[in-house]
Write a protein that binds this DNA or RNA. Sequence first.
DNA 1: AAGACGAGCC
Length: 613
Amino acid sequence: MYCRFGFVDNAYTIFKDMPFRDMGCWNSMISGFCQNGNAKEALNILDDMIMEAIEMDSVTVATILSTCAQMNDILRGMVIHLFAIKHGLEFNVFVSNALINMYAKFGYLKCAQNVFDHMDVRDLVSWNSIIAAYEQNDYPHDALKFFHLMKLNKVQPDLLTLVSLSSCVAQTKDVLCGKSVHGFIIRRCWITKDTVTGNGVVDMYAKLGDIGSARKAFEELPSKDVISWNTMITGYGQNGFASEAINVYRWMKESENVKPNQGTWVSILPAYAHLGALRDGMRIHGQVIKENLDLDVFVGTCLIDLYGKCGRLIEAMSLFYEVPRETSVPWNAIISCHGLHGLGETSLKLFEDMLNEGVEPDHVTFLSLLTACSHSGLVDQGRWCFHAMQQEYGFKPTLKHYGCMVDLFGRAGQMEIAYNFIESMPMKPDASIWGALLGACRIHGNVEMGRKASSRLFELDSENVGYYVLLSNLYANFGRWEGVDEVRSLARDRGLSKTPGWSSIELNNRIEVFYTGNQSHPQSEEIHKELAILNAKIKGLGYIPDFSFVLQDVEDDEKENILTSHSERLAIMYGILNTPPKTCIRIFKNLRVCGDCHNVTKFISKLTERRLL
DNA sequence: AAGACGAGCC
């Protein structure tokens, strides 16, 4: 009874004073410790039990197996499995189920499957366990196969089955299937009964990219726990709605019966990093230190990413050296943020350190390295990485890796090589691959190759406006306005409109977002007026507007107007008007900064003696 | 007797 209410210590005091203990006592003491997350104590009790020469029964074995799973103790788990075989307990339903769960947690799917195959009686837990085993190891199709087998065997699914199922559906990206899973749950009224199931539905919709349905399911949850909130925040973040994620977090803070936890920090920090909200992120950092979570690998990696993305590489580095770095993840973060800021050499150096410390790189490590190389023009080093990942580490390159390579060659101006590289790919190139080539054509002004790339692109992904914009930009650079018109009307016919560019700036603890040509800001008039004055001043310093970045066929003075109202300039001027002289201004944006703005920024920086980041 | 959410790259 004490165990059930979480008073394990009380239970233990009584237990110790008992003159005679039957099997039930031992077992409930062990499982008591285990369920309260105190696996070590549970194993100590087991040792006492062995000391008193009492044999484990099936319940003990099952409990200990789940303890081993919790503690990642593979060796002990296998010893217990041997013990179970020796004592004929292997095919006991409890023991078999526990074995399946344990092996699944270690990723030993073959062992789990083997246990499952040899059971002669299978209960609901057995089916749930084998389904979860495949689902959690990223084999959703196999998991679904067992779900169908389960139905054929006339076993009725329960809440847990559906939780696994919703995760499978999310992994297979099967939107229709998602609706059936949701429908099934609604028919059984499980949403009202159990928060876990509802959370699963919210997460499923978010992972399917249907953030509207996710939000709806979230709002309809009869009770929201901390995981419901974390799921919703992450869902927005991963679908690119960082400010929505922040809004949900604010809403969460207003609700009284929920307290943010480590998972909350891990969901909100990437949203701040995405917007470059350094100060907001730093506030979380402070909170995290108070809670002693700053050395947690998950939180630590998010902080490294935050500081790194915001250009604070020194802070990112010192954090990096404080968090445990036995896994590739924090390494990937620190490698990629150096790459992001054009410090490819440092990224490569860090990779070397990683290998020297005996940390195994994964496919993300190579993605980070390849992007680092392509941003720094390190073509040979990029080739080397691509080669090493296959030859030395046995990774099969994914489409993303191929995309990085195309980007690497393309940015370096090696268009033919990039094209031939695509042609030699063992899989069908997707839109992102041709998109990378088209992007490079835009940079290097290669119209012919650009046409080739875009014709393939429009076949593959006729919905993505970005590609139409790129091609029309390419034509515009060469003054081929008929080409521009053609692309524009093509996009219009398909009902597409352009993603608006935005820039953000943080001021007085608020994030202010500006859109191109934005007139709705309260200070808008002043901003435009000051920008015109500033424009005149920097011309005096030798600035010449580069109209090749204007993509409309209009007169030159109109072109200049268009350039002057780019979102980053509005944000910069807002910053100049509202901060003391010479303070550093930090701008964040969603699209790449245009070449003319980049140039202007340098002049403004000189003129106002401010650092612009 | 088991179980939900959450990072890094794009």
